[in-house]
Design a binder for these strands. Structure first.
Length: 129
RNA sequence: GAAGUUGGUCAGGCAAUCGCUGCUGAAUCGGUUUACCGAUUCAGGAGAGGAAAGUCCGGGCUCCACAGAGCAGAGUGCCAGGUAACGCCUGGGCAGUGUAAACUGACGGCCAGUGCAGCAGAGAGUAUACCGCCGAUGGCCCGCAAGCUUGUCUUGUUGGCACAGGUAAGGGUGAAAGGGUGCGGUAAGAGCGCACCGCGCGUCUGGUAACAGUUCGUGGCAUGGUAAACCCCACUCGGAGCAAGACCAAAUAGGUUCCCAUUGGCGUGGCUCGCGUUGGGAACGGGUAGGUUGCUUGAACCCUGGAGCGAUUCAGGGUCUAGAUGAAUGAUUGUCGCUUCUUCGGAGGUAACAGAACCCGGCUUAUCGACCAACUUCACAC
């Protein structure tokens, strides 16, 4: 299946797309280094947007690296997310993590986001252990 | 061999799998008769740097007159050359540092003008007299001699005082005390005089020049420091920037009211002129912030040869080498190389600085290492 490709339409492209997610996020998942906001869309697949502030990662190399790791992680997990518009924001600690730590953390965050989404829709059905 | 100086090259290599962004080709689908445009799939091939950085200079390009005149302002500043241009580069001069290879240098002018200089010191730019030296000359005192007008007299003279005054040799202060050494000279001294050295000016020689040499003449002689102080001199500079600018769809439309007005308004971002354009401003109400292009063939790179000490340039041949835009250039594995530890089985690390955004030329700053060439000093061998 095409569960590990990352074409153009899978990204958030315009300011309108971002504003839609920021104005009302259905669910979110976060650590002290990364925050993910997400909102359901009508497209039948998930999309990704990235916000890495210059304030948090001063060097362009660091910002590029964070973006690449998050994109790579999203590429491998997008099939689990069904139809969500996600915006990944960096926080101030992100640049201090090494590549492997950051990758593992983002991988876990997708899982947490999905569970949270299930929980918010149907809190009575939660049976995860 | 050791230490060092300068210049240059590289910035882990190869393979596999999965991704991302352009490009080329093919197929399918849609708009459609074709051309052409868009989407999807497949194949091929390309995809960060030496600094991409800081944005400190210089250009190209775009718009405003084909960027024009004056003032203001800014910049540069030994000389010559290179270049599209430069505040860059090359070569040379001068000064300084180093045993040397080499390196460093806002390096025009304060004998155009104005200004500034803490502390110390007597005195700091028309020099100056604190100590010291002298006191010839004038003054005062003691003694002696002579004269006569016999006086608190005059003249001469040995000595003394340091009062007037002289002095820039010596001491002291200072970053700096207004050429140096010697001889003469003098009361003591002094370019006061002379010799040599130094310096200025003119001249001559070499050099395109900066400058150097010192032939000859000349001046007793400084032209103290500061121009990243004003300033003077020479040269350069119009402004804004790819969010420039152009196009498509939609739309700043169209409309109402008020004010000002062709010696005016706007373009035009220092001011004035000039030039272009022609109504401008405010309020009410209404609407949008998508796409294409500019966008990569260029003062390009590589090779060979010619010119030149060199920067560079000329000729011939070859190559096409990122174009993203909520922003691609990545991840994993294996292997080789390098490297750290080692119980010699192996285990670990893969580096530093750092990420294109219209494009070039420089400068500056950051930086793990590896390699090459030339040169210097020391040691050894021949």
């Amino acid at each position: 299946m095409t569960n590990s490709v990352f074409p153009r339409q899978v990204r958030l492209l315009t300011a309108g797309d971002y504003r839609r997610v920021f104005s009302r996020a259905d669910s979110k998942a976060q650590t002290s280094e990364i925050l993910i906001l997400a909102r359901r869309n009508e497209l039948g697949y998930s999309r990704l947007g990235l916000v890495v502030a210059k304030k948090h990662a001063k060097r362009a190399v660091d910002r590029n690296e964070i973006k690449r790791i998050v994109r790579e992680s999203f590429r491998h997990h997008q099939s689990e997310l069904e139809n969500f518009d996600c915006v990944v924001l960096s926080r101030s600690g992100a640049k201090d993590l090494d590549k492997v730590q950051l990758r593992n953390m983002v991988d876990q965050l997708w899982t947490r986001l999905r569970r949270k989404r299930h929980g918010s829709r149907a809190p009575q059905k939660r049976k995860t252990a």
